[in-house]
């Protein structure tokens, strides 16, 4: 039940050249998306706050790529990459972050609550951990409607792991046999707090054991391992009709949010992880598997262009708008 997944990189997955290219493209898209948001922030164009997932690209991309279209996800407050990978158009996500009416949520949610219901990507993760019980309800609806071809994956962080709601949800999913995949993105810190300071046992997979939930962990900077692990977990959930838990160990090289002065970690530590970034690592894998430098660079160029276009589009969109009467009516169906 408790095992570290080791990928055999020579097998099936690596043979799929197109797949590798798609994975790299998506990780770069996510990375450049975050860098673009950071740049817009620096120019004072992003209202409120934003949580970037630079360094964690493999978790969102690898996990979401392992899901099917009909599956649902609950993204986190650091969820741009998760939602984009589920298929949300980047221009709408960018417009949302810039508080525009054309945004994925019409400028009502913003960066922290990025979601796109059209691609089954939900997320209101302003209050950490609380999405887990809601995901159980989504899973329950699948079960009651006999939609047994789908699961719901709920993301949360290592810090959020300590919420009671997460544990209540795990118990509920287990006792009701719900098709819920719990994914803990363990990026080593919750804001400034390292995991060991808030968890007596830092092996978070053990949190799934008392509920009888199949729990595994994976190197979250190895995108193919993440993909494979989540794929297996999904298959298990569909086949057994039971929840599963995956811990993806990674590192956030960007700050927690805009206000982060990085007082809780050293420059050396950040540099070390930058060198181990999932994109750096996967580029190596690609080159070892027949891709040329030029091919890898081409992915870089076209994703840069896509992001620039999305940002230009988002900036050109009109602000979100409503009359007082309209806004008062919006919370109700």
């Amino acid at each position: 039940m408790w095992e570290v997944i080791k990928m055999d990189h020579s097998e099936t997955v690596l043979k799929a050249r197109q797949f590798m290219e798609r994975v790299m493209e998506q990780m770069m898209l996510v990375n450049k998306f975050e860098e673009q948001v950071f740049a817009l922030f620096a120019q004072g164009k992003v209202h409120g706050t934003t949580h970037l997932g630079i360094g964690e690209e493999a978790t969102g991309v690898g996990s979401v790529f392992a899901l099917e279209e009909q599956d649902y996800i609950f993204a986190t407050h650091r969820g741009h990459g998760q939602v984009i990978s589920k298929g949300a158009p980047i221009k709408n996500v960018m417009a949302e972050i810039l508080a525009k009416q054309a945004g994925a949520n019409h400028g009502r949610g913003g960066s922290m609550h990025i979601a796109d219901v059209g691609v089954n990507a939900l997320c209101i993760d302003g209050v950490l951990g609380q999405n887990c019980p809601i995901a159980c309800g989504v899973g329950l609806s699948f079960k009651m409607k006999k939609q047994d071809d789908r699961i719901v994956a709920v993301f949360f962080g290592d810090g959020s792991m300590n919420q009671g709601a997460v544990h209540e949800a795990m118990n509920l999913a287990a006792v009701w046999s719900l098709p819920v995949l719990f994914i803990c993105v363990n990026n080593t810190y919750g804001m400034s707090t390292p995991l060991h300071k808030v968890a007596a046992d830092t092996d978070l997979t053990k949190r799934g054991y008392p509920f009888g939930i199949r729990s595994v962990q994976v190197d979250g900077n190895d995108v193919l391992s993440v993909y494979q692990t989540v794929r297996e977990a999904r298959e298990y959930i569909i086949k057994e009709g039971k929840p599963a838990f995956v811990v993806e160990n990674t590192y956030r090289t960007s700050g927690h949010s805009k206000s982060d002065a990085n007082q809780y970690r050293t420059k050396e530590e950040i540099a070390e992880w930058k060198a181990k970034s999932p994109i750096v690592r996967f580029r190596k894998v690609m080159l070892e598997n027949g891709f040329t430098e030029a091919e890898a660079d081409a992915i870089d160029e076209r994703t840069t262009k896509a992001i620039e276009e999305a940002a230009a589009y988002a900036e050109s969109c009109p602000e979100a708008a409503a009359t007082p009467e309209q806004i008062e009516a919006e919370a109700y169906a």
Binding site: C132, P133, L140, M144, A165
Partner: peptide, 11 residues
């Protein structure tokens, strides 16, 4: 919290 949230999600 668990079952109230399950209600929200199912709804």
């Amino acid at each position: 919290t668990g079952f109230m949230g399950a209600g929200v999600g199912a709804a």
